[in-house]
Computed example of a mutant assay.
Amino acid sequence: MKLYYSPLACSLADHIALLEAGAAFDRERVDLKTKRTETGGDFSLVTPKGYVPALVLDDGEVLTENIAILDWLATQYPALGISGNLGRTRVLEALAFISTEVHRSFKPLWHASTDIQKAKAKVTISSLLNEQSDALAGDYLFGPAPSVADFYLFVMLLWAERFEVDIPAPLLAMRDRMTRRPAVQAALLQEGLISLRERGRASSA
């Protein structure tokens, strides 16, 4: 498999999931402005959508969209999902909420917008994060172990921190727990989001 990603983009969730699963995969960074990969390739030949994530499977099939990729990973690696008759449905429900509500609400903060639009976006995101905080069923969304939905939510929490959005205390604690996980530290290091020194501090915290 090969993951095409861009640092701190939502593809970080897939990167973490692959590492958590212990999957064998390659990774290649994409410049989302030029649509060129780090090896000089044309990313539009991988997917005409032109954005990450894109996961190329061993048989050459290409998966795009975070919900689809994370669902596929949870299907292939059951430890990344939750059990029970409604397990997969509940994970999809959480992924859909994070994608269509939380993720989408960050758009004014990532792109040129007025101060009023940005302020409204922050209020909306904070409200949505409060809903997610209320949904925690323990350390993570579904209990003591994280699922692919938690990995996606973790990226949204990093974005919230970047744009100084208010984060409820339970999600701050969840973010810190997630940051200490070896797979998360490895993904952040590989994407250039933390240094080796920062990784060591996080491990000892």
Rank of each mutant, 00 (worst) to 15 (best):
D58P: 05
Y77G: 04
A54D: 10
G81K: 00
L86M: 11
L57P: 02
E65M: 15
E65K: 05
I69H: 05
G87H: 10
Y77V: 09
D59N: 09
P48N: 15
F97L: 12
L70Q: 09
P53I: 11
V91F: 09
R90L: 10
K49W: 08
Y51C: 12
Q76H: 13
R90D: 03
A96E: 04
S44P: 02
D59P: 01
W72I: 14
L63G: 00
A54H: 09
I69K: 00
A54F: 11
A54Q: 10
P53M: 15
L57Y: 04
T75I: 08
R88F: 13
Q76D: 03
E93L: 07
F43G: 06
G84M: 09
A79W: 13
G50R: 15
A94P: 02
G41R: 11
A96D: 07
I98A: 15
G40C: 04
G41S: 13
V56H: 09
V56T: 06
G87Q: 05
N66Y: 12
A94S: 03
L63Y: 08
G81R: 06
W72N: 13
S83G: 06
L57R: 03
D42L: 04
T75E: 12
D58F: 03
F43T: 11
L55H: 04
A94M: 10
T64S: 10
T89V: 07
P78R: 07
E61A: 14
L95A: 06
G87W: 00
L70C: 00
N66P: 13
N66K: 08
I82Y: 10
N66I: 09
P78M: 01
L45W: 01
T47D: 08
P78T: 03
G40S: 11
L92V: 00
A94R: 14
P48Y: 15
G81A: 12
L70D: 07
T89A: 06
L95D: 06
A68R: 01
Y51E: 03
Q76P: 08
P48E: 12
Q76C: 05
T75N: 15
G50T: 08
I82C: 08
A74F: 09
S44Q: 03
I67S: 08
L45C: 07
L55N: 00
L63N: 00
V56Y: 06
V91E: 11
A74V: 01
K49C: 15
A79M: 12
T75R: 14
L92T: 07
L55W: 01
Y77C: 03
V46K: 11
V56M: 06
T64C: 11
D58I: 07
D58R: 05
N85M: 04
K49P: 13
D59A: 03
Y77N: 06
D71V: 03
Y77Q: 05
D71A: 07
D42V: 00
A96W: 00
